[in-house]
């Protein structure tokens, strides 16, 4: 479904991604893991077209997306729920969701809005409230709901558990599983290695802008080196 080959990208003199290969197949949850500063956010920026790739190819659903702008990428159905939520604080919850279907999914806006409200009853309660007044967890729900409004064919979730209480983190991962159960492929970019590998089918470990390790999630969970480096076991 999504295939990345030899991807290079960076800022000014600094090259952050140094030839990255990875793939997401139909219907699976793939976790991209790594510590701070290994290139996870840069990878997401390139995938969503905000930052241009310097080399390499991105294939999505049979189309080449490297070099495409963010609007064309949204149009293709590759939807990015960014780190830090990036909701519109000065607008109501409902307006935030409606803007999710600005480029894609506009025809089914009403139906999708109901579906998002059914998934997140809390958002329905707060539909008229300014998004900036929501709690962190609610804002994360809103960011995901906004992504769902664009009828994603693949959803990129960037650090969805960041800043949430342990209880909410549990809820968030349960939600990701539920979204995936309806057939939606998900690229989960996380620092939370244990829980991410718990729900993903495959994992990619980034180190210094290249792939350090990859494989089925279960195998990665049991890998002695990974357990030592990331889990301190």
């Amino acid at each position: 479904m999504l295939e990345v080959r030899g991807l290079r990208a960076g800022y000014g003199q600094v090259e952050v991604l140094r030839g990255l290969d990875m793939a997401v197949a139909t219907g699976e949850i793939v976790a991209v893991l790594g510590a701070n500063g290994v290139g996870k956010t840069t990878l997401n920026k390139v995938l969503s077209g905000v930052l241009p790739a310097r080399a390499g190819e991105i294939h999505f659903d049979g189309r080449r997306l490297d070099g495409a702008g963010p609007d064309a990428i949204v149009e293709a159905g590759l939807i990015h729920v960014p780190e830090g939520r990036r909701i519109f604080p000065n607008m109501s919850v409902r307006e935030n969701l409606e803007l999710g279907s600005y480029r894609r999914g506009r025809a089914n806006r009403r139906v999708n809005l109901e579906r998002v409200f059914d998934t997140f009853p809390r958002l329905r309660e707060r539909a008229r409230q300014m998004a900036g007044t929501l709690s962190g967890g609610e804002q994360q729900m809103l960011a995901i709901g906004r992504g769902m409004m664009a009828e994603p064919r693949l959803l990129i979730l960037d650090e969805p558990s960041l800043g949430l209480s342990p209880l909410l983190v549990e809820e968030m991962f349960a939600l990701i599983l539920r979204l995936n159960a309806s057939g939606l492929p998900i690229l989960l970019v996380e620092q939370n290695v244990v829980q991410s590998l718990g729900i993903a089918s495959r994992g990619f470990i980034l180190e210094n802008g290249i792939l350090a390790m990859s494989g089925p999630a279960a195998a990665l969970r049991d890998d002695p080196q990974l357990r030592r480096v990331y889990l301190g076991l």
């Binding site: 702008g69 963010p70 990428i73 949204v74 149009e75 960014p82 519109f88 803007l99 600005y102």
Partner: peptide, 9 residues
């Protein structure tokens, strides 16, 4: 950035 990710130019 949030707007760009909704496909707004």
């Amino acid at each position: 950035l949030g707007a760009q990710l909704c496909g707004i130019d």
